[in-house]
Amino acid sequence: MKEYRWASLGCGVIANELAMAMQKQGRTLYAVGNRTHEKAVEFANKYGITKVYDDIHEMFYDDEVDIIYISTPHNTHITYLLEALKNGKHVLCEKSITLNADELNLAVELAKQHNVVLAEAMTIYHMPLYKKLYDIVSSNSLGPLRFIQMNFGSYKEYDMTNRFFNRNLAGGSLLDIGVYALSFVRWFMSEKPDQIVSQVRFAPTGVDEQAGILLMNPKQEMATVSLSLHAKQPKRGMVAFDKGFIEIYEYPRAKKAVITYTEDNHQEIIEIGKTRDALSYEIIDMEKTISKESDEMHLDYTIDVMDIMTTIRNDWNMKYPEEE
Rank of each mutant, 00 (worst) to 15 (best):
M127R: 12
L174W: 08
L182H: 09
F43S: 07
A21N: 09
F147M: 11
M22K: 13
H57F: 10
D176F: 00
A211V: 06
G12F: 07
H37W: 12
K51T: 15
T28C: 04
A254V: 10
L214G: 06
K2F: 02
I308K: 02
Y53L: 13
F245Q: 12
S71A: 07
D55M: 07
L82Q: 15
Y180F: 05
I283C: 02
M122T: 15
I14K: 09
T98A: 06
H126A: 15
P193W: 05
E209L: 04
D194V: 09
A19T: 08
N314F: 00
L92G: 11
I284W: 01
S141V: 08
L215Q: 11
Y251H: 05
A170G: 11
T161F: 02
E282A: 06
K51E: 13
Q149L: 01
K89M: 01
R167M: 12
T76K: 05
Y30V: 09
M22R: 13
F202K: 02
T98C: 05
E3Y: 03
I259F: 04
I68S: 03
E322L: 02
I213T: 10
S8I: 07
E17W: 10
N34M: 03
K156S: 02
I136A: 05
A107M: 07
K95G: 02
Y320G: 06
E64H: 08
D295P: 00
E83Y: 02
T123A: 11
S138R: 15
M20W: 06
V200H: 03
V137H: 09
A21F: 01
A203P: 00
T161Q: 09
E271K: 12
D264E: 13
V91N: 06
T161A: 02
G212T: 14
L92R: 03
I283N: 09
Q113M: 04
K292Y: 00
G171A: 09
G26Q: 11
E42N: 12
T275P: 00
H74R: 12
A119T: 14
I303K: 08
W187T: 15
A40Y: 04
F164Y: 14
K192N: 00
T76S: 05
T205S: 10
M127E: 15
P218W: 12
V117S: 02
Q267F: 07
G171M: 04
Q267Y: 02
